[in-house]
Nucleic acid binder design. Structure first.
Lengths: 250, 250
DNA sequence: CGAGACGTTGAACCTATTCAACACTGGTGG
DNA sequence: CCACCAGTGTTGAATAGGTTCAACGTCTCG
């Protein structure tokens, strides 16, 4: 019952970001792509990656830019976004350590389909598209892994289309919070903290609504005891209640 | 100015549907998957497929069913749908001759993610998941083709999320009609006929709205001369005007 | 300490939904 | 062959859910 006043979200603040060799190998080894690759080959692969630091708010690339590289998140959170002509925006995905982004298709027009923006400071591992193509040629089973990743994302996107088409705002927000808690959740005295600086605008862009509406809904959820929230942070305190709201089809 | 009274959409009516060998090879040869495969190998692949006829409205599989097969549309139109607990539905995709559907992921849980329902009578080519897996092992480059297909569909789904999140109904419908005209369009005295029996309900499920609203919007479009429409059919008569409506961000 | 970003809340407005009545079409069976 | 009926489409009126605009409070950072 003691409302936390400051954000419990850990924001890394060490300057010019870079990753230790250990972290790099750990990240790469954990990728679905390379989980069957042995240590020596992995180090070979590691050499193909370049590390890039980034600052909060920094845009790694814009939708429509010529696409020549793929990225892996080593540290930090990345927002994948799209924008309309009149300035509205959608947050397509929120990526954390180990997530892959960029033109996974490999064929097709070599432009980025979305804008990638850093939500926190962090470090990315970058690989040239050609190098990745070569890697795929060498290890054909990697394509199957990529296929699995794409299928998962397609299913997620379809799920979102369903929600936007057929559910009221409150349910969409509840679902989104559950998903975020699952993906970015960290245990925090009795609740699951969504471990990224998350604004009302971000949530609005994730659920197809406005920041004002998000604020109202979250106030309601907070009054009902389902979540606790403050400036740029949110924790799920009653998962069951939240799920109930998400699935309430009455 | 003479409003067509009967649907110009050609509906195949020959009973128990099946495909000629010629058609089968033609369809398979045209698939992005097999476009590099030579005649002899193609006939080998052809043997793995079984043909299945289907009637309008028939459900090939339900979302959640154990998934053991992949399908290729030889003839006819297939609706891929999802449903909510309270009976609302979304039409995720409308597939025509040459389109692939089923669990393209190959890994992951072996259940169908959507429901596949025939919109017209038609014929499908079916392959066992295991056979397809074997095919992929034999021809690793096929995985890249599959990857490209998935990427395309993911981009389409993202586009739809953007539209549902940030555009009013009229724009969404206009966009949808343009896309349908592009995919299923057939030239028809001065207009582009969308060559499938398309109900207001279908359009509502494609644009995240209600059949009533679709009806109103289409009436407006028709009054403006952008489209002509009747029972279960629609033709785009002024592409430019429709595109203008679709992109109007004012 | 001030400025700007973030968040909340209220009130008016508007778009699209819902409910309802009716019209048209096409197919079926008497 | 016609009458009927279910499926489809149209239109109107009332309503609701969410947006928009605006004002204000609060936190953070330089």
């Amino acid at each position: 019952m003691s409302p936390r006043r400051k954000s419990p979200v850990q924001t890394v603040t060490t300057e010019p970001h870079f990753c230790s060799i250990d972290l790099r190998l750990k990240i790469l080894g954990r990728l679905p792509f390379f989980d069957g690759v042995t240590g020596a080959a992995l180090e070979e692969i590691n050499k193909l990656f370049v590390e890039v630091g980034c600052q909060p708010g920094e845009v790694l690339y814009h939708a429509g830019d010529p696409a020549a590289r793929l990225y892996v998140v080593a540290e930090g959170k990345i927002k994948l976004m799209q924008h309309t002509a009149d300035g509205r925006s959608v947050l397509l995905d929120l990526l954390a350590s180990g997530d892959f982004f960029g033109p996974l298709a490999l064929s097709g027009p070599a432009v980025y389909a979305e804008t990638a923006q850093a939500q926190t400071a962090g470090c990315m591992l970058r690989i040239a598209l050609d190098d990745f193509r070569a890697l795929l040629a060498e290890h054909p089973e990697l394509a199957l892994k990529a296929l699995a990743v794409m299928a998962e994302r397609l299913a997620a996107s379809h799920q979102r289309v369903l929600q936007l088409s057929a559910m009221p705002v409150e349910q969409r927000i509840a679902f989104t919070l559950l998903r975020l808690a699952e993906k970015l959740g960290r245990e925090q005295d009795g609740g699951i903290l969504i471990d990224t600086p998350l604004s009302r605008d971000d949530l609005a862009d994730m659920t197809g609504t406005t920041p004002e509406t998000v604020s109202r809904v979250i106030s309601r959820l907070q009054a009902g005891g389902a979540v606790t929230s403050g400036r740029q942070w949110l924790a799920v305190t009653d998962r069951t209640k939240l799920r109930q709201i998400a699935e309430n089809s009455a």
